[in-house]
Structures are given as structure tokens and as C-alpha cells.
């Protein structure tokens, strides 16, 4: 019984196969394997016939300097992502607190701001910081031209994440806290927030993926992140396809790792909550 309960849903859709079904699945597996292999072969062939597999496109990855330069870019990406993440964390928390403060005009304002940042593309915000401060005579370093819009875009989402966390705290606890004479603010600070934060840590980590993705338009403001440095390499090596593919894989792996970390933390804290 317990074994049946731990089945994932997609396996649960199928029952233990009989001999006929087993044969059919074997045939289907073989056919689909062939189809997949053919598709891969077609892709490789396209690379081959267009000369993209030529060593000159790939040999640069054997050079230490290539990786050092990309590594520098990656550091830029990490710097922006972490700074933007930290700002978004604070701003998101402030927006959520404002929205749940019970002070009507403040709540409305925070709601509008939250919905605004969630409802516009981060690219638009980046263009804003690229053009507007300059038009007002403000000279913003490219780091901040990138970090601020990314942070603002994330803060709207984080405000909602925090709010979901606050809502997940059982109402009885708030009532109990208020009934023993704690003020609203104290209840929030001492009872609700510590739990809410624990609930949402996995979501916060997952949100870092969005932040990392948003940083990739750094080239708009000429900030040297991973993508921008790749573009520099492309012009010097004339190896567009290989470089963009490698960069894409790096981004995918980073974000995959972040997602995995988020799931791992969720599982770990999940156990804690049960205890």
C-alpha cells in the first residue's frame, strides 16, 4: 500500500502492465528512441553541413583566457543578481508590510506599486533607468542602471511571495497573540513574520532564477556580465553559434542549480515543520 502511495502521479496513470501492454511499451520505447536519435542526428548534421563543427569555432574553449574572461562576466552577473536580490528582498518586504498594514492609503499605494512592477516587463524598467536618469542629468553607473530595474521588477513578485507566506500562518496564532495583548506590529514582528519567512524561503530562492535571467540584458547598458562578455568574445573570435550555445548552457545550469537548491530547502524545512 505504501509503495502505491509514493508513486508519482505520472506513473500512477498507468497500472502494472500485462504482457501485451509490456510488449506495446517496448515497441513504443524503441520507436521513440529511434525518432529522438534521428532528430539529434539531424541537428548534428545541420551543424556539420554549415561548418559550425569546425575546430576554429570551438578551439577557443580550450584557452584559459576565454574562461577567465567569461568567469569575470559571471562575477558581474553574480554581483548584479545578488545585489538586486537583496534590494528586492527588502523592498518586497516593505511593500508587503505596507499592503497588510491596515492603513488604507498606504495599503492602496503599496498594492498599486506591487501590481505595477509585476505587470511591466523588466526590459521596460531597464530602458527607464537607461534613459531617464541621463535625461535628468543624473550620471548612473551601468551597474546600477541594471541592478535597480532588476530589483524593482523582482520586488513586486517578492511582495506577493511574502504575502502568501503571511497568509499561510494560521489565523489562530494571530488571534492568540492579539488576545494576550500584543500590538499589531509586535504580532507581525514576533509571531507572523518569522514563520512566514520560513515558509517562503524556497520561493525566494526560486525567484533568484528570474533575477539572473533579467540580468542578461546587461548589454543594453554595457555592463560587463556573462552575456556581455560573451558578445565581446564573439566579435574577437567570430564564433557566434558556439559561444552563444555555451553561454546558454551555463545560464541553464546556474538556474537549474538554483531551482534544485530551492527544492532541497523546501524538502528540508518541510521535515522541520512536521516536527
Amino acid at each position: 500500500m505504501s509503495a502505491a502511495r509514493t508513486l508519482s502521479m505520472r506513473d500512477a496513470l498507468y497500472e502494472a502492465p500485462g504482457p501485451r501492454t509490456r510488449r506495446r511499451v517496448r515497441i513504443g520505447t524503441a520507436v521513440s528512441a529511434v525518432v529522438v536519435l534521428l532528430a539529434i542526428a539531424a541537428v548534428v548534421r545541420q551543424f556539420w553541413v554549415t561548418g559550425q563543427l569546425a575546430p576554429r569555432y570551438w578551439s577557443l574553449f580550450l584557452q584559459w583566457t576565454t574562461w577567465r574572461f567569461l568567469g569575470q562576466g559571471l562575477l558581474g552577473t553574480v554581483a548584479v543578481a545578488l545585489t538586486a536580490g537583496a534590494i528586492a528582498l527588502v523592498l518586497g518586504l516593505v511593500l508587503m508590510l505596507g499592503r497588510t498594514s491596515g492603513v488604507r492609503p498606504l495599503a492602496a499605494l503599496c498594492r498599486v506599486v506591487t501590481d505595477f512592477f509585476r505587470g511591466v516587463p523588466s526590459l521596460l524598467l531597464i530602458y527607464f533607468f537607461f534613459f531617464v536618469p541621463a535625461q535628468l542629468g543624473l550620471k548612473l553607473p551601468s551597474f546600477w542602471m541594471l541592478t535597480l530595474p532588476v530589483a524593482l521588477a523582482a520586488s513586486g513578485v517578492l511582495a506577493e511571495v511574502f504575502r502568501a507566506g503571511v497568509n499561510a500562518v494560521p489565523r489562530g496564532q494571530v488571534e492568540a497573540a492579539l488576545s494576550i495583548g500584543l500590538s499589531r506590529g509586535k504580532t507581525m514582528r514576533k509571531i507572523v513574520l518569522p514563520q512566514a519567512v520560513r515558509y517562503v524561503i524556497p520561493s525566494l530562492i526560486a525567484q533568484l532564477v528570474v533575477v539572473v535571467k533579467d540580468t542578461t540584458v546587461a548589454y543594453v547598458v554595457s555592463y560587463p556580465d556573462l552575456m556581455q562578455n560573451a558578445r565581446v568574445l564573439i566579435t574577437s573570435y567570430d564564433a557566434l553559434v558556439s559561444l552563444y550555445l555555451v553561454i546558454a548552457v551555463i545560464y541553464i545550469l546556474i538556474n537549474y542549480a538554483i531551482n534544485k537548491a530551492s527544492v532541497a530547502v523546501a524538502n528540508r524545512t518541510g521535515v522541520k515543520i512536521v516536527r
Binding site: 532564477v209 539572473v212 533579467d214 552575456m227 552563444y244 545560464y251 546556474i254
Partner: peptide, 12 residues
């Protein structure tokens, strides 16, 4: 496609 940045995919 969940993890690739949109810009990177568009450029590719």
C-alpha cells in the same frame, strides 16, 4: 526552456 534567459534564447 524554464531556465534559459529569454534574451539568450532570442539571440540564439
Amino acid at each position: 526552456f524554464r531556465n534559459i534567459p529569454g534574451v539568450a534564447l532570442l539571440i540564439i
